[in-house]
Design a protein around this nucleic acid. Sequence first.
DNA 1: CTCACCCTGTTA
DNA 2: TAACAGGGTGAG
Length: 275
Amino acid sequence: MPELPEVETLKQVIEPQIQGLKIINAIIKRPEVTAYPTADIFRKRITGQTFMGMSRRGKFLSMHLDSGDQIVLHLRMTGRLLLAPHDYPKEKHTHIIFQLNNGKELRFSDMRRFGRFWLLQQGETDTYTGISKLGFEPFDPEFSAAYLKTKLEKRKKAIKTCLLDQNIVAGIGNIYADEILFAAGIHPARPANSLNAKEWESLATAIPKRLSYFIEKNKITPEEYLETRGQEYRNTPFLQVYGHADNPCLICAAKLCRTVIGGRSSVYCPVCQKQ
DNA sequence: CTCACCCTGTTA
DNA sequence: TAACAGGGTGAG
């Protein structure tokens, strides 16, 4: 489900609601969703701890606890996090329930079970979540056309594949890669080493611009979020190319094309994004 | 690089 | 019934 804007939305909705609440128990129904440590150690260690805040890095979400421990979560394709009253109907595929001291529960559900939790203990070096290998945040002041160019100008891979590489820029997924490349006027299959200076600039501008636009469009109140069960907080009506294959391009009215790049479905305008 | 895989549900 | 789905990893 989530790319950077959705994880950011999730953080903005959930963080103010759990701050200062204590975990009185954790029910881990599917032990495999805790990648590290084991479900039993995970549960014992966090029980009794208090949520201090949340932070996002790329598509990872970290929940900071009072001891300095961090619960790290990656939602992958279909993971969801929902704060609900304890008697609120449970989603199908609910795998972890954090029971809180105000009668509410923070619940993780995930139909495809790809999502993963880690517990980083206070003072421990993170060698397992992958966060330490991530590239710049798109909103990092050091992120720039020069950075992209330096990292990618020798690569022959399709530029879209490079945008999906979390170790270059963190947080871009399949939908927003297409939206970004459309905004930048760059064909998704262009080899990275074929981009010119102007195109690196367009890309470096489009990345934070498009992502912040979608963060804005995704804004949702806690009430709406609960009502839709955390499912529909991506504002698909604002997507310009993804999911619009065969429709007319918003700029030139040419028919949008669909293709597969790096095994991922890709939509682009054959006129605005020349090969 | 491509492909299979981890899973289940939805759509064609 | 099969293809496809917003992610990431590991094998070949």
